[in-house]
Simulated assay, not measured.
Amino acid sequence: MPRFDGEEPKPPKPGDDEQVPIEVVVQQAVEKLKLPKPVIRTSPDEDFVQVVRVPTWMWMQRATWEPVSESAEVDGLTVTATARPRQAVWSMGEGGSVVCKGAGTPYSKAYAPDSESPDCGYTYRTASLGEPDKKFTVSVRVTWDVEWHGGGQAGVVPGMVMAAQRQLVVDEVQAVVVR
Rank of each mutant, 00 (worst) to 15 (best):
W57T: 06
Q153V: 05
V156I: 14
Q174N: 10
D16F: 05
E18Y: 01
R3K: 07
T80L: 07
A81F: 00
S91R: 10
E8N: 08
A88E: 09
R84H: 08
E31Y: 02
M92W: 00
A63P: 00
E8M: 11
S139H: 01
S91Y: 00
E94D: 15
F4I: 12
E7T: 15
P85Y: 04
E66I: 13
S91M: 09
M1H: 06
I22L: 10
E66S: 13
R125W: 07
I40T: 06
Y122T: 09
Q50V: 02
V169P: 00
D119G: 03
V54E: 03
V51G: 00
K32P: 08
I22Y: 05
V142D: 03
E70G: 00
D17I: 11
V68K: 13
V173C: 03
K37Q: 15
K32L: 14
F48G: 07
E70C: 04
L129F: 11
Q27T: 09
R125K: 13
M60F: 01
V138T: 08
T123N: 09
W65C: 15
G76K: 09
Q167I: 00
V170Y: 05
T78H: 10
E116I: 00
V25A: 04
K37C: 01
V170K: 04
T42W: 00
T80W: 03
P118W: 03
G150S: 06
C120H: 06
P158K: 11
G159T: 03
S108K: 07
L33K: 05
V39D: 11
V173D: 03
K32G: 12
E94G: 07
M160A: 08
T137E: 11
T42Y: 00
G96R: 12
F136E: 09
Q28N: 12
V54H: 07
K34L: 12
F4T: 10
S108D: 12
V24I: 12
M160L: 15
V173R: 11
S43N: 14
P11F: 02
V79I: 15
V52M: 07
R179D: 13
S91N: 15
A164G: 09
F4P: 05
A154Y: 04
P118F: 04
S115I: 09
R179G: 12
W148F: 10
S71F: 04
T56N: 08
S69H: 02
P21H: 05
F136R: 02
S97P: 02
V74F: 10
Y111D: 13
K32C: 08
M60A: 03
V79L: 04
W90F: 08
G152S: 06
